[in-house]
Amino acid sequence: MSRSSTTEADESSSDTQPKQAQSCLTDHETPAVNASDDGEHENDTDELGIPAGIDLSMLSMSCAELEAAMRLPYHAAADLIDEPAGTDPRFTGALADDRLAVLTKHLVGVAHESRVAITEAGWYVSVVDPSNVVMASAWLPAADWAAYDCEREGVIGLNWDGDGGSVSRALAHFERGATVAISYDDRTIALDDGIPFEFSTLDPGSTRQPPETPDLVLPNSFTLPGVDIDELTERMDDIADHVAVVGCPGTDGIELRAEGDTAVVTKEYAGFDDLTEFDGSRKHDVFATYIAAADRTVLSLDYLRNVFSTPRKRDLETGYTFRFGDGLPMKIERQLGSEGFLRYLQAPRVHSE
């Protein structure tokens, strides 16, 4: 498949491994993700009592047909990434340097290498840290590339950071705002801003197998600018090794509290005025809450800091949505381009009161 479009550009990690963090692979006997956890509740119906937006043709579909109709393009790529022994892909394209930098700097906070599924619909990345505490996924759809031509689909193993050939090494020399030509064939990837940087890729079978994401009901959500979370967790990390996230249904707000041996840092967010670092005016893009219960979860600050300390400050001026339940893993998501995303799942920390 070949396409070309014009898009706007978006604007080394810690290896510490806290011993008291649970694994993302912990089984939680909970049903699938609550469809209303984004805080949007639509009750509109037409005169026949049919909810707005429902396609009547779906009522006659079989379960298999319904499942196929609801699948998004990245789902097929996510399935492909679990089969790294398949076909070696062939690809050429072009992507804004800033967008590639945002992706890379977020991923290296989790791990230095990962599998990448290259498909006709886009690139899908899945990565997990060595302790299985944090896993991340990313989707770069074809529509967000300046040019995209996937001649053959497949999975590669890619070094995002480290000595020798890696994406980070190439990005260090690129001029900000440039469009980078990217090509892959026969175990070699090339990043070219006018001076080609080529390096060998990894055997995808040698990279860590991405774990299956547990099905979770996470009834609470809040969206904050990354710059606020970065500043807050940096201060918390100075005095404690964990942070408690608590829902406050009465105010539809949340409290983040870090307690050390001799100091405490607490911050409540119930409105846009509670933000301290974000100085823009896009309040609806960077602040929102939906708190259904007084749930509480505790996270390792070391791992949470890795998500926000490696990107550049300007890349954190967008909204990050957090979804949580009582003692359950925390989901974190931000938009990447017009249709892409970055997603994290961090296991809760075992903590005794």
Score class of each variant (00 low, 15 high):
210 P>R: 02
70 M>V: 08
250 G>S: 13
57 S>D: 12
220 N>I: 11
266 T>K: 15
55 D>S: 05
219 P>G: 08
261 D>N: 07
232 L>E: 09
161 D>T: 02
94 A>D: 04
140 L>S: 04
217 V>T: 14
54 I>L: 14
346 Q>N: 06
175 E>I: 11
327 G>K: 08
204 P>R: 07
348 P>A: 02
261 D>A: 14
322 F>H: 07
11 E>Y: 06
142 A>S: 10
323 R>K: 10
155 V>P: 06
256 L>N: 03
117 A>E: 06
272 F>T: 13
254 I>A: 12
279 D>L: 09
291 I>Q: 05
291 I>Y: 04
137 S>G: 10
209 Q>L: 09
234 E>A: 13
267 K>R: 15
172 A>M: 11
93 G>N: 04
278 F>P: 06
239 I>T: 10
268 E>R: 15
101 A>C: 05
271 G>T: 10
290 Y>P: 00
147 A>M: 03
218 L>M: 06
301 L>C: 01
346 Q>F: 06
142 A>K: 11
255 E>G: 07
303 Y>P: 00
30 T>R: 11
130 P>C: 02
346 Q>H: 07
341 F>R: 01
202 L>V: 03
146 A>M: 13
293 A>S: 15
223 T>D: 02
234 E>T: 14
213 T>R: 13
201 T>K: 05
225 P>Q: 10
309 S>T: 10
93 G>W: 01
250 G>F: 06
71 R>V: 00
247 G>I: 10
265 V>L: 08
274 D>I: 04
259 E>W: 00
239 I>V: 15
104 T>P: 00
13 S>E: 01
36 S>I: 09
137 S>N: 11
188 T>Q: 11
353 E>T: 08
145 W>S: 09
217 V>P: 04
222 F>I: 15
80 L>Q: 09
40 E>R: 08
141 P>I: 02
139 W>V: 02
49 G>D: 02
272 F>A: 14
339 E>D: 14
323 R>I: 05
127 V>Q: 02
68 A>H: 04
231 E>A: 15
216 L>S: 08
44 D>G: 06
53 G>C: 04
80 L>C: 01
85 A>Q: 09
292 A>M: 13
184 Y>C: 06
66 L>H: 08
314 R>A: 11
351 H>W: 12
31 P>C: 05
315 D>S: 15
108 V>N: 00
12 S>T: 14
9 A>W: 00
59 L>H: 01
154 G>I: 02
175 E>D: 13
149 D>A: 09
256 L>I: 11
326 D>N: 12
139 W>C: 00
268 E>W: 02
5 S>T: 10
247 G>D: 09
99 R>E: 12
270 A>P: 01
170 A>F: 12
284 H>Q: 14
278 F>S: 09
177 G>P: 10
66 L>K: 03
255 E>Q: 12
3 R>F: 04
215 D>I: 03
